[in-house]
Simulated assay, not measured.
Amino acid sequence: MQFAQSPSATRPAVLPASGLMTFMPTARARLDSRADVFGDSRDRRVGSDPSARAQGERWAGLLPWQVKRVRDYVDADLHGAMSLSVAAAHARLSPGYFSRRFRQSFGVTFSRFVAARRVERARGLLVGGAGKLCEIALACGFSDQAHFTRTFGNLMGCTPGRWRRQAAAGRFSA
């Protein structure tokens, strides 16, 4: 018994170019509608604003649990040497990706954030009148008094000694 072969069975099926162009958006829409099968794309969207979700914007920056873990790491070892790679490991990200996401979350780089936290701690020690500037510098994780003075001046606009005198006079508050 022999079956009659159709002419289309002997040559490969070829879609006309116009048919392919109409197929692609349809397939993409079908994939987009199924993209949230696991429910994880909803968690990465920006905030809880429904309009932001409707626009399809993605989460910008670190997730809240990552922010907490990194802040805890920085605050716990403020007097020691901070490492971007260790902070990235706490957030379970690669150092490069962590650096970009950290800057999106905090608006500054990781090293600037650490410096600001150290200066903030130093301001508390300066107001308390505890010790010499070199002791405060070492207690806050600066390598020496010159590094402390330079960083403090860049962030606060004056030297630590001047800031201490003005705080004692009541011009500043910690």
Rank of each mutant, 00 (worst) to 15 (best):
A146Q: 15
A115G: 06
M156T: 11
N154E: 10
G124K: 11
V127I: 01
C134V: 14
A137D: 00
Q145P: 00
R117K: 15
D144C: 12
M156Y: 07
A139C: 06
A137S: 02
K132R: 15
L133A: 08
L155H: 11
G157L: 13
L126Q: 03
G157I: 15
A130K: 03
G153A: 11
R117D: 06
E120D: 15
K132I: 13
F113Y: 15
L138Q: 02
A146D: 14
H147S: 12
G129A: 04
R121E: 09
R118K: 14
G157Y: 13
G124H: 09
G129F: 05
C134G: 11
A146T: 15
K132H: 15
E135H: 12
R118T: 03
L155D: 12
N154C: 04
F142P: 03
R150W: 09
G157M: 14
V119P: 01
A130R: 06
V114A: 01
S143L: 05
V127D: 00
G128H: 08
L133W: 06
A115N: 10
Q145V: 13
D144L: 05
G131H: 10
V127N: 00
A137K: 00
Q145D: 09
R123M: 10
A139G: 02
R118I: 06
C134H: 11
C134Y: 11
L125P: 04
A146K: 14
D144E: 04
F142I: 07
F113M: 12
H147F: 03
D144R: 08
I136M: 03
R121H: 13
A115I: 10
A116C: 05
R118D: 07
V114K: 00
A146V: 15
C134I: 14
T149F: 06
D144W: 02
F113T: 06
V114C: 06
T149E: 13
A115L: 05
N154W: 06
L155F: 08
E120K: 04
